[in-house]
Design a protein around this nucleic acid. Structure first.
Lengths: 157, 157
DNA sequence: TGGCTGAGTAAAGCTGCTTGACTCGTGTGT
DNA sequence: ACACACGAGTCAAGCAGCTTTACTCAGCCA
């Protein structure tokens, strides 16, 4: 056909990257519009890790896939802005437990809502069955490449 | 069920990001093993843009979604390492045409081969029909969010 | 002639990470 | 009891890959 879709020929890697970029970009835009323009996706990852009973800086670093110094800097930043607190760790030692403040918990709720909203919209536009199939195939791809323990999600290239 | 798949509950955004990260990581590893450990994905994007008849620095910058200074720095780097040349532009002015050397053309061939190899392996493991469906749904997602002119693929967060 | 436009360049600054070197509590072996 | 290794945390410096700001230079058109 003369009007051939260039996306049909695109590399799978490109399709995945572009899909991720567009969806994440939309997510970031909406969360920023909800009053969180000062939080990047990595901060959301931090909140996910700390959700529940918190974690130490080293645990956080491992979960984020960065050095403990980098994790410390992120925590410094979030502490200054009132999203986390450092408390003495029950197990003592030099350990300190990083925990979420209410502001961070509220952000988690908003972010979760935005994610579901976005996914619902995509289900409408792409078809719920196709979206479910997309999820399922992606999950198998991830399991195939990374097993049961996918590595930390890091900025790509 | 006691043995429930945590990936089934994961956010779509997460699945897309993890899928992209794993596939791109595998791609980078294999291309590095083929002798191109000194080239990042962005260099491959540059080669894609310049493939054919080359481009000016400003055109390249626009296609990459960076400032022309950043594009100039990348071109400086690639020129030093023998992957591109700057030639006088046929249209004159201050313009200069950045074109690929044979080394870059060889890299393009290798990278293309690796991408197809990777996609064939995934077709084997996930099922050709499911992979085709994945591609098709991703293409529709991209078209839905970006129309016919998807923005440059950039490092994400 | 003189000014506008658009490509390219030069220099400095910034962000988010890393590496290297340390300090300090704690348990462990002898 | 004492030394000491270990692991968490922190300080400082460095670095990559961009951006912002500010300029130079060639053509073009009134």
């Amino acid at each position: 056909m003369s009007d051939h879709d260039p996306l049909a020929d695109a590399e799978l890697t490109f399709l995945l990257g572009m899909g991720f970029q567009l969806v994440l970009g939309e997510f970031v835009t909406r969360v920023a519009a909800a009053g969180y323009a000062d939080l990047r996706p990595v901060h959301g990852m931090v909140f996910q890790v700390l959700k529940g009973c918190g974690a130490t800086g080293s645990e956080l670093a491992e979960r984020l896939g960065v050095t403990k110094q980098a994790a410390g800097q992120i925590v410094d930043d979030l502490e200054r802005r009132g999203y986390v607190r450092r408390e003495p760790h029950p197990d003592g030692g030099r350990r300190r437990l990083v925990v979420l403040t209410d502001a961070a918990v509220r952000h988690l709720a908003v972010a979760g809502e935005v994610l579901h909203e976005l996914e619902d919209e995509l289900a409408d536009r792409l078809g719920a069955a196709d979206l479910a199939h997309l999820r399922e195939t992606l999950a198998r791809l991830i399991r195939d490449r990374a097993g049961d323990h996918p590595p930390p999600l890091r900025p790509v290239w």
